[in-house]
């Protein structure tokens, strides 16, 4: 960076450097998203005693690339009575926040694009902004199915946002910081210092709310093929549809990564504090983070292969009458534990 600074006008080097970092985050993320779609088809196939796609390339590894190419060359259909500007902006509004949220995400102790102190708040805000994309898509399509899907999705996301927020408050109380790096550092020690143990109910609720937030099965009423065709994205085709798809999967990876970060100690090695720690000291923190994220990413697919879709009133009941009370109670428990400086998480 100093090298660049020496022969470029002041400030330009910083901009280039940041853009480079953004590319370094977004590119692997896009590849990950592409292969996550393949993983989904493979995992669901395996759970249905099939073998899933295996025709394109060895073991079907070329499938995501073939899919991407296909979607790129397909026609983008603009419905005559659609609001053209909003119709085209909507997919970007779902993908944008899903990518922007990674800005404050610490991949390793020092590996973070923007070390913001209110990182958790920023992420909470951005994951909620994604709902605008869905609502605008439903509205701009000028189709009753799309509108119904958007309405459902909006109500659902707003409901689960609260439970999710409360779960995050629990983490915040336990860690005493909104900075994502500090949250991980607060879990330093060993496998049993991570927050999954004292905050277990919040972990479950956070992850399930995350599934609901990303409109994934069993909370995918926003798409509801059997009732409203494809929900908010019925009218989308080709690349606009692909962008929605990318946004959804990027969001899933984001939720998985955040759960790993807040409850499974992010980049920390699971062998900390045991005799195995020096043995695995050479493994970079990024690998541990990736593995922990993969656990939750797999859960997303496992859920989809297992559960039938929730009825709409059941979704609302679960969100308002089960999750919110549990989180509130558990925040009090955590608060009490912090006040009493309960060992060893809160001392």
């Amino acid at each position: 960076m100093e090298l660049l600074d020496s022969f470029l006008p002041h400030g330009l080097a910083t901009v280039i450097w940041i853009v480079l970092k953004i590319v370094l985050i977004v590119l692997p993320l896009m590849v990950l998203v592409a292969y996550y779609t393949l993983a989904e088809r493979k995992v669901i196939g395996f759970m249905q005693v099939r073998i899933g796609p295996n025709r394109v390339g060895p073991n079907g590894l070329g499938q995501p690339i073939a899919d991407a190419l296909k979607l790129m060359f397909k026609e983008i259909i603009l419905p005559t009575k659609a609001n053209k500007v909003l119709f085209l902006i909507a997919p970007l509004l779902t993908l944008g926040p899903a990518l922007a949220a990674w800005a404050v995400f610490p991949f390793d102790a020092e590996l973070v694009l923007a070390d913001v102190n209110a990182g958790l708040l920023y992420i909470l805000a951005l994951t909620s902004v994604g709902v605008y994309g869905v609502i605008i898509a439903g509205w701009a399509s000028n189709s009753k199915y799309a509108l119904l899907g958007a309405v459902r999705s909006a109500a659902q996301i707003v409901s689960y946002e609260i439970a999710m927020g409360f779960a995050i408050v629990g983490v915040l109380v336990a860690a005493g910081s909104l900075n994502l790096g500090d949250i991980v550092r607060a879990q330093d020690g060993s496998l049993f210092h991570w927050f999954w143990l004292p905050l277990f109910p919040l972990l479950v609720i956070y992850f399930i709310s995350g599934v609901a937030e990303t409109n994934r099965a069993p909370f995918d009423v926003a798409e509801g093929e059997s009732e409203i065709v494809a929900g908010f994205h019925v009218e989308y085709s080709g690349m606009t549809f692909a962008v929605f798809f990318l946004g959804e999967y990027a969001n899933m990876i984001l939720i998985s990564a955040l759960t790993a970060l807040m409850f499974l100690g992010g980049w920390l090695s699971p062998f900390q504090g045991t005799f195995l720690e020096p043995v695995f000291a050479w493994v970079p923190g990024l690998v541990w983070l990736f593995l922990k994220t993969a656990i939750f990413a797999f859960l997303f697919l496992w859920f989809r292969a297992t559960f039938p879709r929730y009825r709409y009133d059941q979704i609302m009941r679960l969100g308002w009458k089960v999750f919110i009370p549990i989180t509130i109670v558990w925040i009090m428990v955590v608060g009490l534990a912090v006040v009493l400086e309960l060992p060893w998480w809160f001392d």
């Binding site: 995992v43 395996f46 759970m47 005693v49 073998i51 496992w302 292969a305």
Partner: peptide, 11 residues
């Protein structure tokens, strides 16, 4: 479903 994940595939 977890058990079927490891089951022999019929395809």
């Amino acid at each position: 479903t977890g058990r079927y994940f490891f089951a022999k595939k019929f395809t």
